[in-house]
């Protein structure tokens, strides 16, 4: 267990399994009657993952579907917990996993900014300070006082992304959402991520796009069937990855 101040995320011998129930017993009656009868299959998602991500690194997590990338990201945000092993994160963390979590359709865009940002752990003052910046980034100035239910899905995502990206976290976890909005807005998101990278934030990106990996990342980690297959040089890993999965 290192306590180096330059470490942002530490993944230490992490195992994660999911129980897949065929028929789940959820009631007391069923639990008492069928306590040993519920058919379940233990599916191994992550198997002994060790990873140390330094401050300021931009890590691209790659791998085919079902390789455990998203699960690893969810573990880092503490939405779920490992069965074995430990994950420590040092510094304020924001995840762009599921954008717009907790958006309330009846409230206006402005109110939802407050609510969403408070879920990310911001105080009222901090939100006040960032409000203009968030609205400007979302380019929703004309709609910000309309209820969110009247938004198109693109507008919805833009608002959600703008909140999450402006939280000022030291660690940013991004899951395949660089496909937000139209070409113009996407480019803007890319630039924002470049900017955050230059500011020395730690970023972990899960993506299938090797272009994004080569564009942003300083390090690539390739997950395969719940294990780390390769870790290190971006160019080398993306090349091998493309060759092997093509």
């Amino acid at each position: 267990m290192s306590t180096n101040s330059d470490v942002a995320i530490e993944v230490d011998h992490v195992y994660k399994t999911f129980n897949v129930f065929y028929d789940k017993t959820n009631t007391i009656k069923e639990k008492l009657l069928f306590w040993n009868r519920s058919k379940k299959e233990v599916r191994e998602i992550l198997n002994d993952i060790n990873l140390e991500i330094k401050k300021g690194e931009v890590v691209g997590l790659i791998g085919v579907n079902g390789s455990g990338k998203s699960t690893l990201l969810k573990l880092m945000t503490k939405i779920i917990y490992p069965n074995k092993g430990k994950i420590e994160t040092y510094g304020k963390l924001t995840s762009l996993l599921e954008l717009g979590a907790g958006f309330h359709p009846d409230f206006s865009g402005r109110e939802n900014i407050y609510f969403n940002a408070s879920i990310f752990g911001l105080t009222r003052k901090e939100i006040d300070k960032r409000l203009d910046q968030i609205i400007e980034f979302s380019e929703l100035e004309g709609f910000i006082d309309n209820p969110v239910r009247t938004y198109s899905s693109g507008m919805y995502m833009r608002l959600a992304f703008s909140v999450a990206i402006n939280v000022d976290a030291e660690i940013l976890l991004v899951d395949e959402i660089l496909s937000v909005g139209d070409q113009h807005f996407q480019e803007k998101c890319f630039q924002k991520i470049e900017q955050l990278k230059e500011e020395g934030k730690t970023i972990v990106i899960v993506t299938h796009s090797m272009n994004s990996v080569t564009r942003f990342c300083t390090r690539a980690v390739w997950l395969h069937e719940g294990r780390i297959k390769m870790d290190g040089n971006v160019k080398e890993i993306t090349d091998t990855y493309i060759k092997e999965t093509a």
Binding site: T77, K78, I79, L93, S95, E98, G102, F120, G121
Partner: peptide, 9 residues
């Protein structure tokens, strides 16, 4: 449950 499944707090 919808926010619990999506964000940490």
């Amino acid at each position: 449950s919808n926010i619990i499944k999506k964000v940490y707090f």
